[in-house]
Nucleic acid binder design. Structure first.
Length: 485
RNA sequence: CGGGGUGUAGCGCAGUUGGCUAGCGCGCAGCGUUCGGGACGCUGAGGUCGGAGGUUCAAGUCCUCUCACCCCGACCA
């Protein structure tokens, strides 16, 4: 190992922030763009996003929703209609003031989210209780002028889906909010991205601007910090009242509808990187991996290349027929280089095939998730069957490992001093569970003193009663405290 | 937006108290030898030194402004 080798290496994982940026750049997921805070998502990163989209979209549709599309621009007057909403978003809205060289009579916001323009439209679409519920979703981009950006985690422009529904009753809206939270988001994030999440309700301070209740899914990153992986909002009648979304009910009365909205974004890619990545780079969860099995042919002489090529072709076809996403690496690099390169890019399984293997009618399968790498010989006609099994094992293993890590970094605190100590230990950050009285003052004080925020109030509660971590008054709920991205 | 730091080839860096044609490693192109865990040799290509202005006989180097990025904060449904 020479000094030069380090040039290609990643930053040490202890320098988590630099490591994160290195992985994104070297795995060719994304790169900086000429526009501040915006990134260029490269083909490999976009392929991951497309897999995420497809899988999440299937779940959204399976729960009875349809997709539609609304404009990128929102008239300023729309944004003004919901007081809390404007207040919350005003600082981060980008405006279009000129069109075709002429100053616009009304400024257009580049959507930071679409509740307003959709609410305005829903008011026309809803007349009767028979028109409800409206269960729609859109995939698109939004812009939020953030002060400090990070690739995938917080970019000025990002890609996401935003669902918008309208219902006849509060109960129905709440059921929708929870269905998306648990049946769609949690199911997707845990089963496809292999990221365990804590599902719970946001505090008033962290609530979506204009919502009655906000729920979130919180994941622990590799440095112990929290990442909000998705949110689901019960908007109550707030937007319905601002936009006159009314219907005539069975009893003949005209009533305001109950609406919800929910979203998940490219931020989840940041989560995948920070949860599963290791010293060797990225680790793609098999179910969303752009490439699930990379085939590395090995040869020296030209005649060897020919037999290996023939075998590779057959193995590739076999894997593809089994529904596995593959790539054959014919680059003129040494095998060792390719191994490291694909490990950096996070491909879960590698298939090596060389002259020796061809002769023995076998191939070598190597798992990315094992250290040291687990290699096994497989008969050529068994490759696809074995790969399928291994991919499932890797998928489970990534989830289990992430869950174990989260558990090892989660602790309970009875006193504020304990929380302070945990948050001061930079190298060993994590989640802290503690009783909280529900008072925003305690929450704010804790944040000011420790930088820890309440990520959410988990739906799964221990029950019983305790003393508030901060003020020691009686508390019936416990909250997850953590530093967050 | 506040405090600190960094901008020299795609990446990582070196460039003395201002001085001649701006260097090194990796990467890249061509040729040859290699090839089962990051190969090697030879020959090349690639730079308005982040940008603008200024001081000077002379600026990568000094001054002013500005932009971007990184770290720590504030902010962040």
């Amino acid at each position: 190992m020479t000094e030069d080798r380090y040039v290609e290496d990643l930053a040490d994982k202890d320098d988590f922030s630099q490591w994160y940026l290195d992985v994104i750049r070297k795995a060719q997921l994304a790169e900086d763009s000429p526009v501040r805070g915006c990134m260029i998502i490269r083909p490999y990163g976009y392929a991951l996003w497309e897999n995420i989209q497809r899988s999440l979209d299937d779940r959204i549709k399976a729960t009875g929703h349809q997709n539609f599309y609304f404009p990128l621009f929102i008239p300023e007057s729309f944004l003004q209609r919901e007081a809390k909403h404007v207040e919350g978003f005003a600082p981060e809205v980008a405006w279009v003031t000129y069109g075709g060289g002429e100053e616009l009579t009304e400024r257009l916001a580049i959507r930071p989210t679409s509740e307003t323009i959709i609410g305005h439209t829903y008011a026309r679409w809803v007349q009767s209780y028979r028109d409800l519920p409206l269960l729609y979703n859109q995939w698109g981009n939004v812009v939020r002028w953030e002060k400090r950006t990070r690739p995938f985690l917080r970019t000025s422009e990002f890609l996401w889906q935003e669902g918008h529904t309208a219902h006849r009753t509060d109960e129905e809206a709440e059921a929708e909010t929870m269905k998306i939270l648990v049946d769609v988001y949690q199911d997707f994030i845990e089963n496809e991205l292999a990221i365990p999440v804590i599902v719970g309700q946001k505090t008033e301070a962290e609530r979506f601007a204009g919502a009655a209740r906000t729920y979130s899914l919180e994941a622990m990153m590799g440095d112990g910090k929290a990442l909000q992986a998705g949110t689901s909002h019960n908007l109550g009648q707030n937007f319905a009242k601002s936009f006159e979304i009314m219907f005539q009910d069975v009893d003949g009365q005209r009533k305001y509808a109950w609406t919800t909205s929910w979203g998940a974004s490219t931020r989840m890619i940041g989560g995948v990187i920070m949860v599963h990545g290791d010293d060797a780079g990225l680790q793609m969860p098999p179910r969303v991996a752009p490439i699930q099995v990379v085939i590395v042919p090995i040869w020296r002489k030209e005649h060897e290349r020919e037999v290996v090529a023939a075998a590779s072709l057959l193995l590739d076809a076999q894997l593809r027929h089994a529904g596995i996403r593959t790539h054959v690496d014919w680059r003129e690099e040494t095998p060792g280089f390719k191994y490291n390169d694909w490990e950096l890019r996070g491909v879960p399984l590698r298939l090596e095939i060389g002259p020796r293997d061809v002769q023995n009618n076998q191939a070598v399968l190597v798992r990315r998730d094992m250290k040291p790498r687990a290699k096994e010989m497989v008969a050529q006609d068994q490759v696809a069957a074995r790969a399928k099994v291994l991919l499932e094992e890797i998928q489970r293993n990534l989830f289990t490992r992430a869950l174990e890590f989260r558990q090892s970094r989660t602790s309970r605190a009875e006193t504020f001093a304990e929380l302070e100590a945990r948050m001061a230990d930079r190298a060993n950050l994590g989640f802290v569970e503690a009783w909280w009285c529900g008072d925003a003052t305690c929450e704010a004080q804790i944040k000011a003193k420790t930088q820890a925020t309440i990520r959410n109030i988990p739906l799964a509660q221990p029950g019983g009663e305790g003393a508030c971590l901060y003020c020691e008054r009686p508390a019936t709920k416990w909250a997850i405290f953590a530093k967050a991205y």
